[in-house]
Simulated assay, not measured.
Amino acid sequence: MERITDPKYLWMGPLGYITKGSKKFILSDDGNLEIYSIKSSDSGRYTCKVSYLYNSTQLTTEIHFMVYVYHIPDKSIHLSSEFTAESCKTNKIDSYEKHLLEKMESLISNLSCEIKEWSTECHTSTDAVEKMTYKLTLQFGVFPSMLTTADLCRSPPCENSTSNLRKAYENIKEFFELQKTDSPHIDELYLIPGTLAAVKVDHCKPGFGKNTNSRKNNSMCPGCCVTCPPGRFSAKQDTVCILCPVGSYNEKYGQVECENCPEAKSSDGKGAKTKRKCHMIRKLKLVQNAVARLLTGMPSRCHITPILQQLHWLPIEYRITFKVLLKPEPSESYLLFGKPVKPFFSDNLSMDE
Protein backbone atom coordinates (compact mmCIF):
# COMPACT_ATOMS: atom_id res chain seq x y z
CA MET A 1 0.00 0.00 0.00
CA GLU A 2 1.39 3.36 -1.05
CA ARG A 3 1.79 6.14 1.53
CA ILE A 4 2.26 9.87 1.38
CA THR A 5 5.97 10.63 1.30
CA ASP A 6 8.14 13.72 1.50
CA PRO A 7 5.40 16.19 2.51
CA LYS A 8 6.30 19.88 2.48
CA TYR A 9 4.15 22.52 4.20
CA LEU A 10 3.71 26.16 3.32
CA TRP A 11 1.52 28.35 5.53
CA MET A 12 -0.03 31.68 4.58
CA GLY A 13 -1.85 33.97 7.02
CA PRO A 14 -3.80 37.24 6.71
CA LEU A 15 -0.52 39.19 6.41
CA GLY A 16 1.29 36.88 3.99
CA TYR A 17 3.57 33.85 4.14
CA ILE A 18 4.58 32.46 7.53
CA THR A 19 8.21 31.41 7.96
CA LYS A 20 10.04 29.48 10.67
CA GLY A 21 11.92 32.62 11.65
CA SER A 22 8.72 34.30 12.88
CA LYS A 23 8.54 35.12 16.60
CA LYS A 24 4.75 34.94 16.72
CA PHE A 25 4.27 31.70 14.77
CA ILE A 26 5.84 28.31 15.48
CA LEU A 27 6.00 25.86 12.57
CA SER A 28 6.72 22.20 13.30
CA ASP A 29 8.25 19.72 10.87
CA ASP A 30 4.96 17.82 10.64
CA GLY A 31 3.07 20.94 9.49
CA ASN A 32 1.52 22.12 12.76
CA LEU A 33 1.12 25.88 13.26
CA GLU A 34 1.06 27.47 16.73
CA ILE A 35 0.30 31.13 17.36
CA TYR A 36 1.72 32.88 20.43
CA SER A 37 0.60 36.20 21.97
CA ILE A 38 -2.35 36.21 19.61
CA LYS A 39 -4.04 39.55 18.93
CA SER A 40 -7.33 40.54 17.35
CA SER A 41 -5.55 41.46 14.11
CA ASP A 42 -4.40 37.82 13.79
CA SER A 43 -7.96 36.80 12.92
CA GLY A 44 -8.63 35.84 9.34
CA ARG A 45 -8.01 33.21 6.71
CA TYR A 46 -5.07 30.79 7.03
CA THR A 47 -4.05 28.41 4.26
CA CYS A 48 -1.77 25.36 4.53
CA LYS A 49 -0.39 24.26 1.17
CA VAL A 50 0.89 20.68 1.27
CA SER A 51 3.09 19.25 -1.49
CA TYR A 52 3.75 15.49 -1.35
CA LEU A 53 4.35 12.30 -3.31
CA TYR A 54 1.56 9.75 -3.60
CA ASN A 55 1.93 6.65 -5.74
CA SER A 56 5.02 8.26 -7.26
CA THR A 57 2.91 11.25 -8.30
CA GLN A 58 3.63 14.80 -7.11
CA LEU A 59 0.44 16.30 -5.68
CA THR A 60 -0.50 19.55 -3.98
CA THR A 61 -3.38 20.11 -1.58
CA GLU A 62 -4.58 23.30 0.10
CA ILE A 63 -6.37 23.27 3.45
CA HIS A 64 -8.13 26.47 4.51
CA PHE A 65 -8.89 27.61 8.05
CA MET A 66 -10.65 30.62 9.54
CA VAL A 67 -9.30 31.87 12.88
CA TYR A 68 -11.47 34.15 15.02
CA VAL A 69 -10.02 35.67 18.19
CA TYR A 70 -12.58 36.18 20.94
CA HIS A 71 -12.87 36.99 24.62
CA ILE A 72 -15.57 36.70 27.25
CA PRO A 73 -17.27 40.11 27.73
CA ASP A 74 -16.07 42.27 30.59
CA LYS A 75 -18.69 43.62 32.98
CA SER A 76 -19.57 46.91 34.61
CA ILE A 77 -22.47 47.80 36.90
CA HIS A 78 -24.64 50.83 36.26
CA LEU A 79 -26.51 52.09 39.33
CA SER A 80 -29.21 54.66 39.96
CA SER A 81 -31.00 55.95 43.05
CA GLU A 82 -33.39 58.75 44.04
CA PHE A 83 -33.37 61.22 46.90
CA THR A 84 -35.85 63.77 48.20
CA ALA A 85 -34.40 67.23 48.65
CA GLU A 86 -35.47 70.53 50.17
CA SER A 87 -34.46 72.39 47.02
CA CYS A 88 -32.47 72.07 43.83
CA LYS A 89 -29.99 74.78 44.74
CA THR A 90 -26.70 74.02 43.06
CA ASN A 91 -24.43 74.51 46.07
CA LYS A 92 -26.39 72.05 48.21
CA ILE A 93 -26.55 69.41 45.47
CA ASP A 94 -22.84 69.82 44.66
CA SER A 95 -21.91 69.43 48.32
CA TYR A 96 -23.91 66.24 48.68
CA GLU A 97 -22.58 64.83 45.41
CA LYS A 98 -19.02 65.39 46.59
CA HIS A 99 -19.82 63.64 49.87
CA LEU A 100 -21.31 60.63 48.09
CA LEU A 101 -18.55 60.33 45.51
CA GLU A 102 -15.73 60.53 48.07
CA LYS A 103 -17.43 57.94 50.27
CA MET A 104 -18.06 55.44 47.48
CA GLU A 105 -14.58 55.83 46.04
CA SER A 106 -13.17 54.97 49.46
CA LEU A 107 -15.38 51.86 49.57
CA ILE A 108 -14.00 50.45 46.30
CA SER A 109 -10.46 51.85 46.28
CA ASN A 110 -8.89 48.47 47.17
CA LEU A 111 -10.96 46.50 44.64
CA SER A 112 -9.36 47.78 41.41
CA CYS A 113 -12.64 49.46 40.44
CA GLU A 114 -13.48 53.01 39.40
CA ILE A 115 -16.61 55.15 39.43
CA LYS A 116 -17.36 56.73 36.06
CA GLU A 117 -20.23 58.30 34.09
CA TRP A 118 -21.47 60.18 37.17
CA SER A 119 -24.57 62.29 36.54
CA THR A 120 -27.36 63.87 38.58
CA GLU A 121 -30.68 65.48 37.77
CA CYS A 122 -32.82 67.49 40.17
CA HIS A 123 -36.46 68.29 39.42
CA THR A 124 -39.72 69.15 41.14
CA SER A 125 -42.04 66.40 42.30
CA THR A 126 -45.46 66.16 43.94
CA ASP A 127 -46.18 63.72 46.76
CA ALA A 128 -49.45 61.96 47.68
CA VAL A 129 -50.86 64.98 49.53
CA GLU A 130 -50.07 67.33 46.65
CA LYS A 131 -47.11 68.87 48.47
CA MET A 132 -44.41 70.28 46.24
CA THR A 133 -41.05 68.56 46.84
CA TYR A 134 -37.80 68.07 44.97
CA LYS A 135 -36.26 64.87 43.76
CA LEU A 136 -32.61 64.19 42.98
CA THR A 137 -31.82 61.30 40.60
CA LEU A 138 -28.28 59.94 40.76
CA GLN A 139 -26.71 57.70 38.09
CA PHE A 140 -23.20 56.28 37.85
CA GLY A 141 -21.23 53.24 36.78
CA VAL A 142 -18.72 51.01 38.56
CA PHE A 143 -16.02 49.80 36.17
CA PRO A 144 -13.10 47.41 36.68
CA SER A 145 -9.85 49.34 36.23
CA MET A 146 -8.84 46.88 33.50
CA LEU A 147 -11.52 48.41 31.26
CA THR A 148 -9.85 51.81 31.37
CA THR A 149 -6.42 50.69 30.17
CA ALA A 150 -5.26 49.38 26.82
CA ASP A 151 -2.36 47.44 28.35
CA LEU A 152 -2.54 43.70 28.84
CA CYS A 153 -3.53 42.87 32.39
CA ARG A 154 -2.60 39.58 34.02
CA SER A 155 -2.31 40.70 37.64
CA PRO A 156 -4.51 39.08 40.34
CA PRO A 157 -6.86 42.13 40.56
CA CYS A 158 -7.62 41.81 36.85
CA GLU A 159 -8.09 38.06 37.04
CA ASN A 160 -10.55 38.60 39.93
CA SER A 161 -12.37 41.50 38.30
CA THR A 162 -15.78 39.80 38.46
CA SER A 163 -15.61 39.06 42.18
CA ASN A 164 -14.14 42.52 42.86
CA LEU A 165 -16.99 44.14 40.95
CA ARG A 166 -19.54 42.14 42.93
CA LYS A 167 -17.88 43.16 46.19
CA ALA A 168 -17.84 46.81 45.09
CA TYR A 169 -21.58 46.66 44.45
CA GLU A 170 -22.20 45.04 47.84
CA ASN A 171 -20.20 47.79 49.58
CA ILE A 172 -22.09 50.55 47.79
CA LYS A 173 -25.45 48.89 48.45
CA GLU A 174 -24.64 48.57 52.14
CA PHE A 175 -23.59 52.22 52.24
CA PHE A 176 -26.93 53.38 50.85
CA GLU A 177 -28.89 51.12 53.19
CA LEU A 178 -26.98 52.12 56.33
CA GLN A 179 -26.35 55.82 55.95
CA LYS A 180 -25.55 57.48 59.27
CA THR A 181 -28.15 59.91 60.48
CA ASP A 182 -25.48 62.16 61.99
CA SER A 183 -24.21 63.14 58.53
CA PRO A 184 -24.79 66.85 57.93
CA HIS A 185 -25.95 66.09 54.42
CA ILE A 186 -28.76 63.74 55.44
CA ASP A 187 -30.72 66.58 57.00
CA GLU A 188 -31.27 68.01 53.52
CA LEU A 189 -31.36 64.94 51.25
CA TYR A 190 -33.00 61.61 52.01
CA LEU A 191 -32.62 58.39 50.10
CA ILE A 192 -35.99 57.12 48.87
CA PRO A 193 -36.20 53.48 50.06
CA GLY A 194 -36.22 50.88 47.31
CA THR A 195 -34.92 53.18 44.57
CA LEU A 196 -31.39 51.81 44.38
CA ALA A 197 -31.21 49.79 41.14
CA ALA A 198 -28.28 48.08 39.44
CA VAL A 199 -27.85 46.64 35.96
CA LYS A 200 -24.91 44.63 34.63
CA VAL A 201 -23.55 45.86 31.29
CA ASP A 202 -21.32 43.89 28.91
CA HIS A 203 -18.22 45.50 27.44
CA CYS A 204 -16.04 44.33 24.57
CA LYS A 205 -12.48 45.51 24.18
CA PRO A 206 -11.73 47.93 21.30
CA GLY A 207 -11.68 46.05 18.02
CA PHE A 208 -14.25 43.50 19.22
CA GLY A 209 -18.04 43.23 18.96
CA LYS A 210 -20.62 41.08 20.68
CA ASN A 211 -21.21 37.73 19.02
CA THR A 212 -24.98 37.85 18.45
CA ASN A 213 -25.21 35.33 15.63
CA SER A 214 -26.98 32.10 16.55
CA ARG A 215 -25.37 29.76 14.06
CA LYS A 216 -23.91 26.45 15.18
CA ASN A 217 -20.32 27.72 15.00
CA ASN A 218 -21.05 30.12 17.86
CA SER A 219 -21.83 27.33 20.33
CA MET A 220 -18.20 27.36 21.47
CA CYS A 221 -18.67 30.74 23.11
CA PRO A 222 -22.22 32.12 22.78
CA GLY A 223 -22.43 35.83 23.50
CA CYS A 224 -18.66 36.32 23.36
CA CYS A 225 -16.86 39.35 21.96
CA VAL A 226 -15.38 38.49 18.56
CA THR A 227 -12.95 40.51 16.45
CA CYS A 228 -14.68 43.00 14.19
CA PRO A 229 -14.53 41.82 10.56
CA PRO A 230 -13.25 43.88 7.62
CA GLY A 231 -15.53 46.81 6.84
CA ARG A 232 -16.29 47.38 10.55
CA PHE A 233 -14.54 48.75 13.63
CA SER A 234 -15.05 49.34 17.33
CA ALA A 235 -13.22 52.18 19.10
CA LYS A 236 -14.80 51.94 22.56
CA GLN A 237 -15.69 49.31 25.14
CA ASP A 238 -19.15 48.70 23.71
CA THR A 239 -20.60 45.61 22.05
CA VAL A 240 -21.19 46.76 18.46
CA CYS A 241 -18.86 46.65 15.47
CA ILE A 242 -19.75 49.77 13.51
CA LEU A 243 -19.71 49.98 9.71
CA CYS A 244 -16.91 52.09 8.30
CA PRO A 245 -18.34 55.53 7.38
CA VAL A 246 -18.63 56.70 3.79
CA GLY A 247 -15.20 57.76 2.58
CA SER A 248 -13.30 55.13 4.56
CA TYR A 249 -12.49 51.41 4.46
CA ASN A 250 -11.01 48.62 6.58
CA GLU A 251 -9.26 45.54 5.22
CA LYS A 252 -8.30 43.88 8.52
CA TYR A 253 -9.91 42.18 11.51
CA GLY A 254 -10.05 43.70 14.98
CA GLN A 255 -9.52 47.36 14.07
CA VAL A 256 -10.36 50.39 16.24
CA GLU A 257 -10.71 52.76 13.29
CA CYS A 258 -11.09 52.75 9.52
CA GLU A 259 -8.63 54.11 6.96
CA ASN A 260 -9.66 57.25 5.08
CA CYS A 261 -9.92 56.97 1.32
CA PRO A 262 -7.16 58.79 -0.58
CA GLU A 263 -7.71 62.47 -1.30
CA ALA A 264 -10.49 63.22 -3.80
CA LYS A 265 -11.83 59.67 -3.43
CA SER A 266 -14.78 58.22 -1.53
CA SER A 267 -16.55 54.90 -1.08
CA ASP A 268 -20.02 54.30 -2.48
CA GLY A 269 -21.46 53.47 0.94
CA LYS A 270 -20.71 52.36 4.46
CA GLY A 271 -18.75 49.22 5.28
CA ALA A 272 -16.11 49.33 2.52
CA LYS A 273 -13.72 46.38 2.99
CA THR A 274 -10.96 47.29 0.54
CA LYS A 275 -9.22 50.36 -0.84
CA ARG A 276 -10.59 49.42 -4.25
CA LYS A 277 -13.99 50.56 -3.02
CA CYS A 278 -12.70 54.16 -2.98
CA HIS A 279 -13.56 55.93 -6.24
CA MET A 280 -12.50 59.22 -7.75
CA ILE A 281 -14.91 61.97 -6.72
CA ARG A 282 -13.05 64.65 -8.65
CA LYS A 283 -13.66 62.94 -12.01
CA LEU A 284 -17.31 62.45 -11.15
CA LYS A 285 -17.60 66.11 -10.19
CA LEU A 286 -16.07 67.19 -13.50
CA VAL A 287 -18.55 65.01 -15.39
CA GLN A 288 -21.48 66.36 -13.36
CA ASN A 289 -20.39 69.97 -13.85
CA ALA A 290 -19.92 69.49 -17.61
CA VAL A 291 -23.38 67.94 -18.00
CA ALA A 292 -24.97 70.68 -15.87
CA ARG A 293 -23.42 73.45 -18.01
CA LEU A 294 -24.42 71.62 -21.20
CA LEU A 295 -28.07 71.39 -20.10
CA THR A 296 -28.28 75.02 -19.01
CA GLY A 297 -26.11 76.52 -21.74
CA MET A 298 -23.94 78.27 -19.18
CA PRO A 299 -20.25 78.94 -19.97
CA SER A 300 -17.44 77.30 -18.00
CA ARG A 301 -16.49 80.58 -16.32
CA CYS A 302 -19.79 80.62 -14.40
CA HIS A 303 -19.78 79.24 -10.87
CA ILE A 304 -21.25 75.76 -10.71
CA THR A 305 -23.25 76.09 -7.45
CA PRO A 306 -26.08 78.28 -8.86
CA ILE A 307 -26.26 75.99 -11.90
CA LEU A 308 -26.69 72.90 -9.75
CA GLN A 309 -29.30 74.70 -7.66
CA GLN A 310 -31.20 75.65 -10.83
CA LEU A 311 -31.28 71.98 -11.85
CA HIS A 312 -32.09 70.88 -8.28
CA TRP A 313 -28.98 68.68 -8.33
CA LEU A 314 -26.94 67.79 -5.29
CA PRO A 315 -23.14 68.05 -5.59
CA ILE A 316 -21.72 64.60 -6.18
CA GLU A 317 -20.33 64.14 -2.63
CA TYR A 318 -23.72 65.02 -1.10
CA ARG A 319 -25.52 62.85 -3.64
CA ILE A 320 -23.44 59.87 -2.50
CA THR A 321 -24.38 60.56 1.12
CA PHE A 322 -28.05 60.97 0.14
CA LYS A 323 -28.08 57.63 -1.65
CA VAL A 324 -26.43 55.94 1.31
CA LEU A 325 -29.05 57.33 3.70
CA LEU A 326 -31.83 55.98 1.50
CA LYS A 327 -30.28 52.51 1.54
CA PRO A 328 -31.59 50.35 4.41
CA GLU A 329 -29.04 49.63 7.12
CA PRO A 330 -28.01 45.97 7.42
CA SER A 331 -28.83 44.31 10.69
CA GLU A 332 -26.24 44.70 13.41
CA SER A 333 -26.64 40.97 14.00
CA TYR A 334 -24.26 40.54 11.13
CA LEU A 335 -22.79 37.26 9.99
CA LEU A 336 -19.51 36.82 11.78
CA PHE A 337 -18.82 33.29 10.70
CA GLY A 338 -18.57 31.96 7.18
CA LYS A 339 -18.21 28.33 6.22
CA PRO A 340 -14.55 27.46 6.74
CA VAL A 341 -13.25 23.95 6.39
CA LYS A 342 -12.25 24.04 10.07
CA PRO A 343 -13.16 26.96 12.37
CA PHE A 344 -10.44 27.56 14.97
CA PHE A 345 -10.90 29.73 18.04
CA SER A 346 -8.52 30.98 20.67
CA ASP A 347 -9.56 29.62 24.04
CA ASN A 348 -7.54 31.60 26.56
CA LEU A 349 -7.92 35.24 25.65
CA SER A 350 -10.31 36.60 28.23
CA MET A 351 -7.61 38.90 29.57
CA ASP A 352 -5.13 39.13 26.69
CA GLU A 353 -7.05 41.30 24.24
Score class of each variant (00 low, 15 high):
residue 222 P to M: 13
residue 269 G to Q: 06
residue 241 C to F: 08
residue 196 L to M: 13
residue 158 C to R: 10
residue 230 P to Q: 03
residue 229 P to R: 07
residue 135 K to N: 11
residue 163 S to W: 12
residue 118 W to I: 04
residue 262 P to S: 10
residue 148 T to L: 08
residue 333 S to C: 13
residue 122 C to G: 11
residue 205 K to H: 12
residue 127 D to K: 01
residue 89 K to S: 05
residue 95 S to P: 02
residue 301 R to M: 07
residue 180 K to H: 09
residue 83 F to I: 06
residue 243 L to P: 07
residue 146 M to K: 12
residue 127 D to N: 15
residue 145 S to A: 08
residue 38 I to R: 09
residue 316 I to V: 11
residue 208 F to S: 00
residue 238 D to I: 04
residue 16 G to T: 00
residue 147 L to F: 11
residue 125 S to N: 15
residue 98 K to T: 11
residue 324 V to I: 05
residue 69 V to K: 00
residue 260 N to M: 13
residue 102 E to Y: 04
residue 277 K to S: 14
residue 44 G to I: 05
residue 117 E to R: 07
residue 205 K to Y: 10
residue 2 E to V: 06
residue 337 F to V: 15
residue 82 E to T: 09
residue 6 D to C: 01
residue 3 R to E: 12
residue 317 E to G: 02
residue 314 L to T: 00
residue 132 M to T: 13
residue 333 S to Q: 14
residue 63 I to E: 09
residue 271 G to R: 01
residue 324 V to K: 10
residue 90 T to V: 09
residue 165 L to N: 06
residue 5 T to I: 09
residue 109 S to W: 12
residue 1 M to T: 09
residue 159 E to R: 15
residue 140 F to H: 03
residue 201 V to N: 06
residue 253 Y to A: 02
residue 22 S to D: 15
residue 226 V to N: 06
residue 27 L to H: 07
residue 249 Y to D: 02
residue 167 K to E: 15
residue 265 K to F: 03
residue 48 C to D: 08
residue 158 C to I: 12
residue 124 T to G: 15
residue 224 C to L: 05
residue 90 T to H: 08
residue 246 V to M: 13
residue 221 C to M: 13
residue 110 N to A: 02
residue 273 K to S: 15
residue 100 L to D: 02
residue 333 S to F: 12
residue 110 N to I: 06
residue 346 S to V: 09
residue 245 P to F: 00
residue 342 K to M: 14
residue 9 Y to E: 02
residue 49 K to R: 14
residue 161 S to H: 14
residue 47 T to D: 03
residue 134 Y to G: 08
residue 301 R to W: 12
residue 21 G to S: 10
